[in-house]
Write a protein that binds this DNA or RNA. Structure first.
Lengths: 223, 223
DNA sequence: ACCTGAACACCGTTCAAGT
DNA sequence: ACCTGAACACCGTTCAAGT
């Protein structure tokens, strides 16, 4: 389909492959990100990829790193630790939100590259300022990052994102199914049906649960 | 390899397939759960599976349902709402913990089957008792469940679980890498290295972060 | 240094056909 | 009702070879 210099002028490169992989994941989901498919988009044979990446897993490593590098870490300030932590978590979420299909890749790869290590260092430092011992900070910090990723992944349907029209229809069906449940047994599911099938406002959803996470830190016993 | 009645005496059945798929996922990870592999273990051709499941996705639906059905929902009592909620989240985590490779399947499938709807109804009911409006309860409740799943998924390495020996080695390597980082830039990562690479006690890790989640509810504005 | 050709062992899935 | 045979369009990966 794509001739050689359509996607990249000149040579094939790690960066060019990663950029097209990100676009592909955004458009059609992570399952569409395939060695063979990427090769085709660059007008190259599948084996050419193996010069730039050891295997598919290291391609995914590259995607995760690319994602994490996009995080715009705020400068350290003199705000209270919890407020500064919140800003970092906001920045992290802002960076991965546009790529829900890829966000999950970051879960087990934050400590693999420098950009992720910098984030971890900041988060751990703030938690220590908040009174957490190193091991506790590690456990809580890991969970915080994973939870943010979970927030971003939550609105990723696996496979190709459906078109607006069929998506609307699927949501209507799902909501109708919930609302036609026996009212005696499921009163709360029925009452919450609209919000269960799709949140009213994504920003509200995110900030509500970020409030929960950061607020929850204050109740924990330190030591 | 396996003769016909090794894995199942008599006929093939949905349940028998699911049970062997769970065992396979536990032993070798979700990637090993393959139509062809399962067929082989039941001494049957791959196409036989398509009589029992529409496609692979509905097999995964079945696995998720199987997992959620294992949740031992505590009886409703007269404990405070947050305490009862905590018990439900504990029960949920206890059920999915043994199957980290499968836990992720439950994320988008809780509302698909009755067992999950019952859990959702209880969680939503308790959140409403805690003062949350229906839509807010939906958003917080969804996040709570997803976070619990994240906790369980967190210690699932994709692919076949490595043997004890090579796992130990991999963890030692990872820890050594973190500890040999420049101390000027990464003091907190270095201090937390042991806990970042593997938590001392999994129960502690889980209960610490469950405390965070449930405690975080109290700080949220209701309405 | 960078890429191709040919081949291997896998996937999920369909469709017609057997009992 | 339950399963098979044959076929299709995909995967990731290796290895020797070309320029």
């Amino acid at each position: 389909m794509a001739k050689r210099n359509e996607a990249t002028r000149g040579r094939l490169s790690r960066e060019a492959i990663i950029v097209s992989a990100v676009a592909l994941a955004d458009a059609e989901g992570l399952d569409a990100v395939t060695i063979r498919r990427l090769a085709q988009e660059h007008g190259v044979t599948p084996m050419a990829m193996y010069w730039h990446f050891n295997d598919k897993d290291s391609l995914l490593d590259g995607l995760a790193e690319h994602l994490i590098e996009a995080v715009q870490l705020p400068e350290p300030g003199d705000a209270p630790w919890d407020q500064e932590l919140r800003e970092i978590l906001d920045a992290f979420l802002a960076a991965i939100r546009p790529h829900p299909a890829l966000a999950g890749l970051a879960m087990r790869r934050i400590l693999a590259a420098e950009s992720g290590l910098l984030i971890a260092e900041r988060v751990l430092g703030l938690l220590r300022r908040g009174g957490f011992a190193p091991a506790q900070a590690a456990e809580v910090g890991t969970f915080l990052i994973c939870s943010i990723i979970t927030l971003a992944v939550a609105d990723a349907v696996p496979g190709p994102p459906p078109t607006g029209e069929e998506r609307e229809q699927a949501l209507r069906d799902k909501r109708a199914r919930l609302e036609s449940l026996p009212p005696g047994r499921y009163p709360n599911v029925i009452a919450a049906a609209p919000a269960l099938v799709v949140c009213r406002d994504e920003d509200d959803y995110f900030s509500l649960n970020l409030d929960l996470l950061v607020g929850g830190l204050h109740g924990l016993r330190r030591g």
